[in-house]
Design a protein around this nucleic acid. Structure first.
Ligand code: SF4
Ligand code: SF4
Lengths: 158, 158
DNA sequence: TTAAAGAGGACTAAAATGGTCCCCAATAAA
DNA sequence: TTTATTGGGGACCATTTTAGTCCTCTTTAA
């Protein structure tokens, strides 16, 4: 199904809450409450986000977590990468040596096109886009505030 | 890592071989040989591709598998969907009721933007693009023959 | 009639994932 | 200086998912 992991999903929900007060510091437990996710799990997610410099942390009483950047500068790609590592659909995109088929594989080179496309799509949407609640359409679905169009073109000059 | 499954990867490799003779019929075992993948596994992949109408099958002696469409008309999206089901990054994109957080989730609606972007990217690349062996660049990497550009724009008229 | 193919599905081992817990470090406030 | 509150790091385990194999049945050309 090409799914992101639950933890990545949680991360976006949690950051969505934080984005509503971008400079405020939140305790992990408070975030767990408002997101409806278990405390330990929220902690786990936030720890990963700290490592990836998506949020900053402060220890001690009155400590907590704070967005490291404005919501506009925090891409969905960076959030997913924080939880799941580099965004790459195939083994070889990370490290060729990990794939046993590599030597006989004849589609290897072409994956980079797709990888870059996916990455660009996830990079183009930011936390700010996710955090807003767009107007509800008549069909019960939110109307997206941002659309992404594609222009496949052959033999780019590069 | 946002990876596709190994079976999807195999599918693309196998179809890559078939794309070189789009109207030929291949026995599963022959494909296993040329792809360097185990016979039973290749069979499993091909069965899934038949169900999704990506390939056609013929039983009996001299039977085998054949592309259902030209490589140009076979999108990577359809191949991945054949092996992994609908392309959707989050639970709620498939069926809202599957997600426990749904009621308290405030980013739900915005995922559709990303989902459509990913789907469009995978739809834009075809088996024909994957099957070719592009010229090797001086840095040891193939030069992609197709590039996909993104144009995020706000508040589309829809 | 036979042999060569695929169809369908059960089954298992291994890997990934999600969730919890424990103990340590930092620090603000009493 | 002590204490209480917060995060850091990582181990741990149960569950789910994935990958791979195998068996039996159906189809069909020779
Ligand atoms: S080298 Fe080929 S088989 Fe291996 S991960 Fe890349 S595309 Fe897949
Ligand atoms: S409803 Fe929210 S929490 Fe549930 S899958 Fe969708 S985005 Fe994730």
């Amino acid at each position: 199904m090409l799914r992101i992991s639950k933890l990545s999903d949680y991360a976006i929900i949690i950051l969505g809450h934080m984005a509503k007060a971008p400079s405020q510091t939140f305790a992990a437990n408070d975030l767990a409450g408002s997101a409806g996710i278990g405390g330990p799990t929220v902690s786990k997610v936030l720890k990963a986000l700290v490592k990836a410099h998506v949020v900053r942390s402060t220890r001690g009483p009155k400590g907590g977590y704070q967005l490291a950047q404005t919501p506009e500068k925090t891409s969905i790609a960076s959030i997913i990468a924080a939880l799941e590592g580099p965004i790459a659909l195939t083994e070889c995109s990370i490290d060729l040596s990990h794939c046993e088929q590599a030597s006989s594989c004849n589609v290897r080179g072409n994956w980079s096109v797709i990888n870059r496309a996916i990455h660009a799509a996830l990079e183009a949407v930011t936390l700010a886009d996710m955090a807003i609640t767009p107007p509800m359409g008549s069909d019960g679905f939110h109307i997206p505030v941002k659309d992404i169009t594609f222009q496949p073109r052959r033999n780019p000059e590069q």
